[in-house]
Amino acid sequence: MSPSFVPPSRGVLDDCVRLATTAPSLHNSQPWKFRVTPPEVEVYADPGRHLPVIDPAGREHLISVGAAVFTLRLAMRRAGYDVRCDLLPDPADPALAARVTAGRVTPVDQLTEQLAAAIPHRHTNRSPFADVAVPAGAVDRLRSAARREGATLTVAGPVARDAILGLARAADRRLRERPHYADELRRWTGQNARHDGVPVWAAAPWDALEIMPMRDFVPVGPGPRPREPFEPHPTIMVLATAGDTRADWLRAGMALQRVLLTATWLGLATTPISQPVEVAAVRSVLGRTPAQMVLRVGYGRVSGRTPRRPLSEVLLPAGPSRVTATGNGDERP
């Protein structure tokens, strides 16, 4: 590093972390912590926010953290710095997911500008989409986004699409049969959602056509859940990685967020459909390489963004501490 290198200020890096917290996560659990030591930001997986019933191996936990890592990288790059990202840099500290380091000052390219501009607008859209095909050019952009992060994004044809949606519905039924599944869902959704979780207003209506497998969140009010017809021929994509290690799960999260931000920039709405990758027997038949997420992509009306935790709750103090199961810094010698 050049002797004339001036690292970004703590304020700049705090702003980058704030943007990183807008990343998507399972049930909006926001399972991340950050330690800022200019020019570095360490990203930790918060074990206290792991959902053990729906995600026993912690795969989606790390995908969520990977999405935050990508957003942090993008924000630091948008701030005008070259960026280096080291995944799982300390074998002795498995909670440390990534170390992101700002390097020399570098001009910001157009793609970085576009993706960074999409960060405040990206959100999960659980409402019906228009019955309009996603243009081939947009699909190519999404595939390219996944490739840039070492993943693949496959668009399901009509037969595969119907099969995947059928598998998703079957997986959803199996998940509901798991002991304590409803309790875990209730913890993170509905009236319990404040700075995290999925609030009542973000829950989707049931699909009147019974095609789209929407997550069975807590009741949105008295009486039956609203029903609306969803698009009959949704665009379904499968995000996959070459391997299925913890590093692959982090890369899948980075690829997922790059795809979602690219879609947002293109004016597309997105819905992760995670049920088919949450049941091992279903996930194993989704492709030749490990499927990490199923996405629904299309054109939908704008919906709100789910709440985010304040920066004070996700920043760790400087020093040699680790993240414990309570999510707090634990000083160790």
Rank of each mutant, 00 (worst) to 15 (best):
Leu316Met: 15
Ser303Arg: 05
Arg10Leu: 09
Leu96Ala: 02
Ala171Glu: 01
Tyr81His: 09
Met76Trp: 03
Ala116Arg: 01
Phe70Glu: 15
Ala116Ser: 10
Pro333Trp: 10
Arg227Trp: 00
Arg227Ile: 01
Val65Asp: 10
Ser64His: 06
Asp55Ser: 13
Glu228Lys: 12
Gly157Asn: 10
Leu261Asp: 06
Arg104Ala: 14
Ser274Ala: 12
Asn328Leu: 15
Arg84Glu: 11
Val279Lys: 11
Ala203Gln: 11
Arg308Leu: 06
Leu261Pro: 06
Arg283Asn: 12
Pro89His: 05
Tyr81Cys: 01
Val155Lys: 05
Val43Leu: 06
Asp248Asn: 11
Glu60Gly: 05
Ala116Trp: 02
Trp249Glu: 10
Leu19Phe: 11
Gly253Leu: 09
Glu331Thr: 15
Thr124Ser: 14
Glu60Pro: 01
Ala102Cys: 12
Ala170Asn: 05
Ala130Arg: 13
Leu87Trp: 07
Ser274Met: 02
Pro272Ser: 14
His27Gly: 01
Ala67Asn: 03
Val238Ala: 04
Glu210Pro: 00
Thr241Lys: 08
Val6Arg: 13
Asn125Tyr: 12
Leu153Glu: 06
Ala208Ser: 10
Gly253Pro: 06
Arg78Trp: 02
Ile236His: 03
Thr264Gln: 08
Thr101Met: 03
Gly80Met: 04
Glu278Phe: 05
Asp131Phe: 00
Ile273Phe: 08
Ala240Glu: 12
Arg225Val: 12
Leu167Trp: 12
Gly137Trp: 08
Met1Cys: 08
Ala193Cys: 01
Tyr81Ile: 00
Gly304Glu: 10
His121Met: 12
Phe230Cys: 07
Ala269Tyr: 07
Ala202His: 10
Tyr181Ala: 13
Leu286Phe: 08
Val53His: 02
Glu40Ser: 15
Leu167Glu: 10
Ala171Val: 06
Gly223Phe: 04
Pro158Arg: 04
Ala45His: 05
Val132Gln: 12
Trp188Phe: 08
Val139Lys: 15
Tyr299Asp: 02
Trp188Leu: 07
Gly197Arg: 08
Asp196Cys: 14
Gly190Glu: 03
Leu115Met: 10
Phe217Asp: 11
Glu313Pro: 00
Leu250Pro: 05
Val83Asn: 03
Ala269Asn: 04
Thr306Asp: 00
Cys85Pro: 00
Asp131His: 01
Arg84Trp: 04
Pro135Asp: 15
Val218Gly: 07
Gly80Asn: 01
Gln275Met: 05
Met254Phe: 13
Gly190Val: 03
Leu26Phe: 15
Arg173Tyr: 14
Ser284Gln: 03
Gly300Thr: 02
Ala280Tyr: 03
Val53Lys: 02
Thr241Asn: 05
Phe230Glu: 08
Arg251Asp: 01
Gly157Trp: 00
Asn125Thr: 15
Ala280Glu: 13
Ile63Trp: 00
Ser25Glu: 05
Glu313Trp: 04
Val83Thr: 03
Pro3Leu: 06
Thr101Cys: 00
Arg309Glu: 07
Glu228Phe: 03
Pro89Glu: 07
Asp55Pro: 07
Phe70Lys: 08
Pro31Phe: 11
Ala98Ile: 07
Thr262His: 13
Leu72Ala: 09
Ala208Tyr: 01
Leu266Arg: 14
Met214Gln: 08
Ala95Leu: 05
Gly329Ser: 09
Ile236Thr: 04
Arg99Met: 04
Pro307Gly: 04
Asp131Met: 00
Val297Thr: 10
Asp82Ser: 06
Val238Thr: 10
Pro320Met: 09
Ala136Thr: 13
